[in-house]
Structure formats: structure tokens, C-alpha cells
């Protein structure tokens, strides 16, 4: 078992005091970056890259990967506490995390999000370590038709599992697709739906849509419920 030997060798290097301290710093920085809306794991790693210039390559990789993991979890914090997903992948956390927080059980929701992040990350790392040769051969066969099938299943699940009438879900979902189609067509290079506006050339940013729909929507909802100005 070469993998186990390599893994243990890796742990021996990672578990030095200096590297553990770097992990700690990296996770904290990552969580801060994840909480800020619009700064995701990849941006965070890019911004904090200069911090690692003076480090050895191994320490730098450890710190940057910890920043990345921290940012993945940090996105869940705003989803649970404010119903504003900081990153695309924490949108699903708003579905049940925010209602829990409203019932005063935010701590439980955060613990659940953290535990599931931890378990998921652990399982993923173990799987990748042992299965990556197998997965690599399979991944090449996962082409556009398979991706389409997975996405179709996802969006059908949205329609099926939503509490709202299915046609409302369908209309909003498809409008989202139409928003995503604004801008330069990636295949032909033609300009779609820009109507001569240069601002629309690059389309609608995910961040803009999220802040508008979740952030401002949440502020207005709070106002409507009369929680403010008292």
C-alpha cells in the first residue's frame, strides 16, 4: 500500500508545530474571507498569496489549503445568520440553516454545518487518496451528456421539492437561466440580450444577483416585519 506510506509521510511533515500554527492562522483567515460576501475561497487564496512568499513551499501549500477550507465553511456562517449566501455553494445552507437560526438555534445550525463540512472534507480526502486512479479513468467518460443529465436532475428536483406551485418555481428558475445567458455567447461570440449596453457585455455577475435577491430582499423583509427603527 504505497498510498498509506505516502499519507503517513505527509502527516509526519504536516504535524510539526510550525505547520500546525500555520493551519490555525489559515483557517481563521479563511473563515473571515468566507464571511465577506463576494470573496470566495479562490479569491481569498489569491489575495493572501503574498503572505506565503517567505515560507517554504510545503508550509505555503498547507496555509493556502487551510485558507480555502476555512472560506468554504465561512460562507455557511452568513447563510445561516443573515440568509445571505457568501458563496455559490452555500446557497443550499440558507434553506434550512436560516430557519433554524430564526428559531434561536443558530449555534446548532452552525455546528451542523461545520460538522458536515468536516465529515465531507475528510471523506472526500480519503476517497481521493485511494480512488483517484479509478476516478481519473471514469472522469474522462463523464462528458457533456452526463453533465446535462446531472443538471437536469438537479433542476427537476428544485421543481419537485419546492413548497411553491411548480410553475412559479419553473418560471423563476428559467428566468435565472435567461439572466445567465446575457452577454457574449461563448460558442459564437454573438452578443445576447445586451441591447447595446456595454455594462451587460459580461453578463450578470453571480454576486450582483445574490446581493440583490438575498441581501437587499432580506433587508426589505426585515423592514416589513417591523423589526427596525424601534
Amino acid at each position: 500500500m504505497d498510498e498509506i506510506q505516502s499519507l503517513l509521510h505527509g502527516f509526519a511533515i504536516a504535524l510539526s508545530f510550525k505547520n500546525l500554527a500555520l493551519m490555525f492562522v489559515g483557517i481563521i483567515l479563511g473563515v473571515i474571507i468566507g464571511v465577506l460576501p463576494g470573496l470566495g475561497g479562490a479569491n481569498g487564496v489569491a489575495i493572501l498569496l503574498p503572505l506565503t512568499f517567505s515560507m517554504s513551499p510545503t508550509s505555503a501549500i498547507i496555509m493556502l489549503s487551510c485558507i480555502y477550507w476555512g472560506a468554504l465553511f465561512g460562507g455557511a456562517i452568513t447563510s445561516i445568520l443573515f440568509n445571505i449566501p457568501g458563496e455559490p455553494w452555500s446557497v443550499a445552507t440558507t434553506f434550512d440553516g436560516y430557519p433554524l437560526a430564526q428559531k434561536g438555534r443558530a449555534g446548532e445550525a452552525l455546528t451542523a454545518a461545520f460538522t458536515s463540512s468536516f465529515v465531507g472534507a475528510l471523506v472526500a480526502v480519503i476517497l481521493i487518496t485511494f480512488l483517484s486512479p479509478v476516478v481519473a479513468s471514469f472522469a474522462l467518460e463523464f462528458g457533456p451528456p452526463e453533465f446535462f443529465a446531472v443538471y437536469l436532475l438537479t433542476f427537476c428536483a428544485f421543481v419537485g421539492m419546492s413548497k411553491e406551485p411548480p410553475f412559479k418555481t419553473l418560471a423563476s428558475m428559467m428566468l435565472g437561466f435567461a439572466l445567465a445567458a446575457v452577454g457574449t455567447d461563448p460558442v459564437t461570440g454573438a452578443l445576447r440580450l445586451t441591447f447595446g449596453s456595454t455594462h451587460l457585455l459580461t453578463g450578470f455577475d453571480f454576486l450582483v444577483a445574490v446581493i440583490g435577491l438575498f441581501g437587499i430582499g432580506e433587508i426589505l423583509l426585515t423592514l416589513e416585519e417591523g423589526l427596525a427603527f424601534k
Binding site: 435567461a178 445567458a181 454573438a190
Partner: peptide, 24 residues
């Protein structure tokens, strides 16, 4: 597919679904 192929069918979905919503 031409540039408008995908948005066209997406928008057809939007139109049909919101027409149903309107009638409902």
C-alpha cells in the same frame, strides 16, 4: 446551434410557466 437557440427555449419556458401562473 445559433446564438439565440438556448435563450429562446429558456424564454419559452418562462413565458409558458408565467402564462399558467397568470391564469391561475
Amino acid at each position: 446551434p445559433q446564438a439565440g437557440y438556448f435563450p429562446f427555449y429558456i424564454a419559452l419556458f418562462v413565458c409558458v410557466a408565467s402564462a399558467v401562473n397568470l391564469v391561475v
